[in-house]
Amino acid sequence: MVWRRAFRGVREQAHDARAFVRFLLADFADVDDVVQVAGELVANALTHTRSGAVGGAYVLELRRWRCGVALAVTDQGGPAEPRIGYGGFAEHGFGLLTADALATWWGWCGTERSRTVTAVFHRRPS
C-alpha cells in the first residue's frame, strides 16, 4: 500500500501531517515512533529547506507492507545536506538523531533542488 499527500510549507500543517500518518498506521505496532519521526522530518523540511519559504510545500509518503513501513518526506531542497547533529553546541540535527534512534534505517537522496529523507520501520515481533 502506498499513500502520498502534499502539504503547504507552513507550521500549522505539521499537525495535519502527523495526523495523516497516525490515521493510516493506527494498527501498526510502532505507530508512535513513525509519527514522532514524521514530525521531525517535517520540521526539518520547514526549517532547513525552501519548503518552509512563502509558497513552499513538501510531500509525505507512506509505504506499508506486511512487516514494515517506509516514511518519506520530499522537500524543495536547500543549500545544506541533511546530517545528524551530535552534542556540544550543535543547534540542529537532533531530528535526524531521533530518526536514527527510532527507525530501523534512514537515509536521503537528492540535490539542492529537491531532497527526499526516508525512514524505514520494521514491525516489532509480537
Rank of each mutant, 00 (worst) to 15 (best):
W108R: 08
H122D: 11
L41S: 00
G95S: 07
R8S: 15
R5T: 02
T47Y: 07
V31T: 13
A57H: 15
Q36C: 11
L71F: 11
T74Y: 07
G93P: 15
G93W: 05
D100Q: 11
G88S: 12
G85P: 04
A53S: 14
W3Y: 11
V35Q: 02
R113K: 03
R113D: 13
W106P: 03
G110F: 02
T104S: 15
Q76V: 02
A19C: 09
A19W: 04
R22G: 10
N44H: 10
D75K: 04
S126F: 05
R66C: 00
V73Y: 03
F7R: 03
Q36R: 14
G68R: 05
E40H: 08
R64L: 05
I84E: 14
M1F: 11
A101W: 06
R18T: 05
G88L: 15
A43Q: 11
G110I: 05
E81G: 04
A101V: 04
Q36L: 12
V42F: 08
V2E: 13
F20T: 03
L46T: 06
G9M: 06
S51W: 05
T111M: 10
A6I: 10
R11W: 02
D33W: 00
A70P: 00
Q76T: 06
R66E: 12
A99K: 10
A43R: 01
S114T: 15
A80C: 12
V31K: 09
F121L: 14
F23R: 15
C109R: 15
A90E: 13
L24P: 01
A19P: 09
A45F: 00
E12A: 13
Y86Q: 12
W3F: 12
W65D: 09
V69Q: 13
T74G: 04
E91A: 15
T74L: 11
R22N: 12
V2L: 10
F121Y: 14
S126C: 07
V69P: 11
Q76D: 10
W105H: 06
G110D: 00
D27M: 04
R66Y: 08
R11E: 07
G68Q: 04
H122M: 15
W3P: 08
S114R: 15
C67Q: 14
I84K: 15
R83K: 11
F94T: 12
T104H: 11
A103C: 01
